[in-house]
Structure formats: structure tokens, C-alpha cells
């Protein structure tokens, strides 16, 4: 298998601002995922490009696409081409670095985002696999490294409370509303990080219900 396309709308769609689904719409999605993982717009971002992204990001509008996603804009938002200016006006510093050599996550369309705001630091490594679809293959959150399978949706929950012997409520709920193919638990300093690779795309209502129930849950 070369891809992980699970909906006809991965192929017919997305509706987007041009010019490239893999180098524009995909980076918008990587930026959106980064925004969700950071929990809002970071103050400072350094983007490391690899492979085709390093060679062609300027021609494809990859810079404005990532800036748009980082600010939570959708792929068809008319503000997408102006996103770097809008970020600058809001005091968000975004830099782009063309890296040489192989992508650390093994794909020619790779962007690694180092985000910070004071002491808060998050790193997201994403790749754009074509047609606007992305994978998130590596995340560093609260100093802990997470390696999801890649394809979205990915659900992440930071569990700070006492241990439950029979699993945590999020897992029980996920089994009911969003069946997953893999669950990982990463033991971090102050918490346990639960990572679920979800099988099918989640409906908006499902995401909303999960957020209502478990406030800090992250649905990529």
C-alpha cells in the first residue's frame, strides 16, 4: 500500500486555494494539526523543510499554507495567501529553513515545526502524501516523544489523574464512538499520554462530543 485514503472525498476534494494539493492544501492541514497540538497559535515557529518541500516550497506557496494552518485557517479560506502577513501583524514569528539530506520521517514532502511560546515547546513532524492528505509521524509534547502510525485521525489525551486499574474513561468512550486500530500509552513526567490511531474519519459531532466530555482531548 502506498497511501491510506479512506474516503472518496480524499480523492474528489479538498476544495482549496491553489496551487498544489500536496504542497499547499497538505501544509495547511499540517499547520492545523500543529495548532491543535500546541493548543493555539505559538509565538515563534521554525519550519524545517526536507526533500521536495525544501526544493519547491516557494513556488508552491508552502510557506503561506503552513502559516495559514498554524493560525487555524481552512484550506479554502481566502486569507490563505496573506497568512504570513497576518501572522506578522499578530506578532507571530515564523521562519523557514531548507534542510539538506533525507527527511527524518522518510517522506519527500516533510515539514518539521518547532513551536514555542516562552517555556512551552512542541515539535510536530508531518508529511504531505498527496491530494491534500497528510500524516503526522512524530510529535514531541511536554518533552515526551510520540510516534503515531501517521494517517489521521489521531486522538491524543493527556491523563494527569490517578491511575485507573480498568483503563481510563477516554478509552472506553473511544471504543464506543471512534474505533481505533492502535492505542499507545507514553509515561511522561507529570502525566500519561494516550495516543489512539482512529480507523475511520470522525464526524464533526463525534469530535465535538469528545471535546465536551474530555476538555483537553486533541483530535487531529
Amino acid at each position: 500500500m502506498s497511501g491510506n485514503y479512506r474516503s472518496v472525498f480524499d480523492i474528489i476534494g479538498p476544495i482549496m486555494i491553489g496551487p498544489s494539493s500536496s504542497h499547499t492544501a497538505g501544509p495547511v492541514a499540517i499547520g492545523q494539526a500543529a495548532n491543535k497540538l500546541f493548543g493555539g497559535v505559538p509565538k515563534k515557529v521554525t519550519v524545517h523543510y526536507y526533500g521536495s518541500f525544501a526544493q519547491t516550497h516557494r513556488g508552491h506557496g508552502t510557506d503561506y499554507a503552513l502559516a495559514a494552518g498554524l493560525q487555524g485557517f481552512a484550506a479554502d479560506d481566502p486569507r490563505v495567501p496573506r497568512a504570513p502577513m497576518i501572522a506578522k501583524d499578530n506578532g507571530v514569528d515564523i521562519r523557514f529553513v531548507e534542510e539538506e539530506g533525507e527527511s527524518p520521517i522518510g517522506h519527500p514532502n516533510t515539514a518539521i515545526l518547532d513551536m514555542s511560546n516562552g517555556d512551552k515547546k512542541v515539535q510536530v513532524s508531518g508529511c504531505s502524501i498527496g491530494g491534500g492528505a497528510i500524516e503526522i509521524r512524530d510529535i514531541v509534547l511536554d518533552g515526551s516523544e510520540i510516534k503515531p502510525s501517521g494517517p489521521l485521525p489521531i486522538v491524543i489525551y493527556l491523563y494527569k489523574e490517578e491511575k485507573h486499574e480498568n483503563g481510563i474513561p477516554v478509552t472506553t468512550e473511544m471504543e464506543k464512538v471512534a474505533p481505533f486500530s492502535r492505542k499507545q500509552v507514553i509515561r511522561a513526567k507529570d502525566e500519561d499520554i494516550y495516543v489512539y490511531d482512529v480507523k475511520n474519519y470522525m464526524r464533526d459531532e463525534t469530535v465535538k462530543a469528545l471535546k465536551d466530555k474530555f476538555g483537553s482531548i486533541i483530535c487531529l
Partner: peptide, 23 residues
């Protein structure tokens, strides 16, 4: 027409990919 095209495209995308950077 679009459903047919998209459904067959899914098979192509999953087996051969649809990115110029890979294929």
C-alpha cells in the same frame, strides 16, 4: 461521474499514490 472517478481513484491512490513527489 465524480463518485465513480473518486472510488476508482481511491484504489489507485492506495496502491500507487497520487503525489508527484513520490510517483
Amino acid at each position: 461521474f465524480l463518485f465513480t472517478a473518486g472510488g476508482l481513484g481511491m484504489v489507485m491512490a492506495n496502491h500507487a499514490g497520487i503525489a508527484g513527489a513520490t510517483g
